[in-house]
Design a protein around this nucleic acid. Structure first.
Length: 649
DNA sequence: GGGAGAGACGTTTTT
DNA sequence: CGTCTCTCCC
């Protein structure tokens, strides 16, 4: 098949354009990935070397779709194209021996997560050492500062003269970097900025692609967008994106980068895709009305309904409470599958909270319908799971300083920071590793006085490592993640799933880390998929059901923010709702509840107005009110259910 | 190192 | 409202 087979209009122009840079603004369901794929096909057919093409995007799911698209091309050489996430590309670049040598930084990422405002797991040692050796305040304060530094790198504030701004900032950063250096680790947020810094300082190492193609450009932060310019400096750059689908501001995405691209890049050649091939016509009208509230008078970008598409079935329903909603929607799904011939895999249920998602999934499973949920799980939330992972890390590499630091400080309020400082100083003075030093210190107690607690910890660690290291891999799993133990059950599930493909501990460890990072969401499933609104981005389904569309859950905007940021946060939530409602090809259901149990609301992290009563009233989200004059009337769920879920339209 | 009392935090999402 | 952290005191 030729690259331009069946192509017309803007899609043809996008695939054929020889100008650079090329910018494509494309709304949801407009076929941008398809156009991009054909563009790659043209490049290959015209003889561009595949190794000279870089195709990247931000999320793993989008990257996987991109990789599959390219593989589907079935053109000789298409496998050799560099395709994936920008992160994995940078990671690969930084991990090269010659690069490591020059930059002096190791690329081992610090496994960590935030809870109650504090960085956990592998960052705990860092926090303990900060607390003991500096006076930057309590854990929360240090966490805030670390995240602020990551944000500054992501937004390239680091390039503004005079950064870090204060003496205290500088000391903080020096301590942070020196800790990471000693422990051979890197914050995940450092990966791209470090790659950018390296390439700028060492232009000879720039792979200098002939063609750089970027999907979902609005998701990238400034450092990432800048890196694209560096990588594509000598060749062509094509970027594709949609400001209205920007939902990653929380990680400093810079959607302005795409709207102001032509200003920062003279001679930008523009194309746009506006016709929504995915959604029913009536859904497009509603979505347009909603998103126009983000643009005020500027109606430049609109999604256009596709004439040949169906009108679509839309229902806006309200149930009494969460319980009624979960059961009612489970009834709806059952009815769609059993009586209207809808396949389970064609149904997407989007909830604003994972607990609501679990409730609906369970209600479906009880009715004999296969349903799976996809929410971010903190598989290493429990200390047992953390211990298991850290031990596994040491089994792979005894010299892993991060894992050893974690294990040495485990169980202590102070992380034995005082003793660890002695150990670290000794290591740095004698150019030895903590593991080597502890091994020696165990044999010769005069070597390093004052580390009694560390020695006690280490004796246990080394015994466990030796014990585990001599056994089979499956025995390691059973030992570290015993069946029936609550804290490790999630980790055990993951381990058992990947175990058949792992002959070595190293493979097991890598597979577990990979699985933990991001469970894949299948594009074609045989079961009902239940997930967050965010996770639905990029997916298509015949039926989309958005649950609990209540002001208490969406939009959630921090009232303490200054007015400008508050408005921006509201707009982002509106984009989230826009993304969610533009997933369907046939049926859209927007569901809400009228009252909620106070205790339950609290559990779901929602702040309700104070007051008496077991229940609190909760209004429908303002976004439903913003869908315009063609919005169907809201019906009560109970009534809807009684009449076998008619779509009145 | 342990215990008591005050105070902060809490959603969703990514690499 | 329940849980965790921090501080202060012994």
């Amino acid at each position: 098949m030729a690259w331009n087979d069946g192509l017309t209009g803007a899609a043809l122009a996008i695939a054929a354009a020889t100008q650079s840079p090329l910018r494509v603004m494309a709304g949801p369901g407009t076929g941008k990935s398809f156009a991009l794929k054909r563009r790659v096909a043209r490049l290959l057919e015209e003889g561009v070397k595949p190794s000279q093409i870089l195709a990247v995007t931000f999320t793993r799911n989008a990257a996987r779709a991109l990789v599959n698209d390219i593989r589907d091309l079935n053109i000789v050489g298409s496998q050799q194209i560099n395709a994936g996430t920008l992160h994995s590309f940078c990671f690969g670049l930084l991990s090269r021996n010659d690069v490591l040598e020059i930059s002096g930084r190791a690329t081992r990422p610090l496994l960590t997560f935030k809870s109650s405002g504090i960085l956990r797991f592998e960052a705990e040692g860092l926090l303990h050492d900060f607390l003991y050796q500096t006076s930057f305040g309590p854990r929360r304060e240090i966490t805030k500062q670390i995240l602020a530094f990551e944000a500054a790198w992501a937004r390239l504030q680091s390039e503004v003269p005079g950064w870090p701004t204060t003496e205290s900032d500088r000391i903080f950063q020096d301590f942070l970097i020196s800790w990471l250096r000693f422990h051979g680790a890197m914050l995940i947020g450092e990966v791209v900025p470090e790659a950018l810094k390296f390439l700028r300082a060492n232009p000879h190492f720039n792979p200098g692609f002939d063609h750089v193609l970027v999907d979902e450009f609005q998701d990238l932060n400034r450092a990432e967008q800048e890196l694209i310019d560096v990588l594509g400096a000598a060749g062509g750059i094509s970027i594709v994106g949609d400001v209205d689908q920007s939902i990653y501001r929380f990680r400093h995405a810079n959607p302005e980068g795409i709207s102001t691209y032509a200003t920062s890049h003279p001679n930008t050649y523009d194309q746009s895709l506006q016709e929504c091939r995915r959604c029913p016509k009536r859904v497009v009208v509603l979505a347009n009305e909603l998103i126009s509230k983000n643009h005020g008078a500027n109606l430049a970008q609109r999604l256009v309904p596709r004439p040949g598409n169906c009108d679509g079935d839309i229902a806006i329903v309200q149930w009494a409470d969460l319980n009624a909603e979960a059961n009612g929607l489970a009834g709806l799904v059952t009815h769609l599958i059993n009586s209207r011939g809808v396949e389970p895999g064609d149904i997407l249920v989007l909830t604003p909270r994972k607990l609501i998602g679990y409730a609906i999934r369970d209600a479906l499973n009880e009715r004999g319908i296969d349903a799976h949920s996809f929410y971010q799980e903190e598989a290493f939330e429990s200390t047992e799971a953390q211990y298991a992972l850290a031990m596994l890390t040491l089994l792979v590499d005894k010299e892993d300083r991060v894992a050893l630091r974690y294990l040495l400080g485990r169980g202590s309020d102070t992380g034995f920071a005082e003793e660890y400082a002695l150990l670290r100083t000794y290591c740095e003075d004698n150019n030895l590793s903590p593991w080597q030093t502890m091994v020696s210190a165990e044999q010769d107690s005069s070597l390093l006085p004052g580390v009694d607690n560390l020695l006690l910890q280490f004796t246990e660690i080394i015994a466990a490592v030796e014990d585990l290291g001599s056994g089979e891999i499956s025995a390691i799993v059973d030992e570290l993640m015993p069946a029936g133990e609550e804290g490790v059950s999630g980790l055990r599930d993951v381990a058992l799933r990947v175990l058949p493909n792992c002959e070595t501990v190293e493979k097991l460890y890598n597979a577990i880390c990979h699985e933990l990072a991001q469970p894949e969401i299948p594009e074609d499933a045989e079961y009902v998929r239940v997930m967050s609104l965010q996770k639905s981005k990029g997916l298509t389904a015949k039926v989309t059901i958005v649950t609990t569309c209540n002001q208490a859950f969406i939009p959630i905007v921090d009232g303490n923010l200054p007015p400008v940021e508050r408005r921006e946060a509201l707009q982002e939530q509106r984009r989230l709702f826009y993304v969610a409602m533009t997933r369907c090809t046939d049926i859209l259901v927007l569901s809400s509840i009228s009252k909620i149990e106070r205790a339950l609301a609290h559990k779901l992290g929602t702040i309700l107005p104070r007051g008496g009563g077991q229940y609190a009233r909760t209004p429908t989200t303002q976004f439903i009110g913003e869908l315009g004059s063609t919005t169907p009337a809201t019906i009560t769920g109970e009534e809807w259910l009684r009449h076998d879920f008619p779509f009145g339209n």
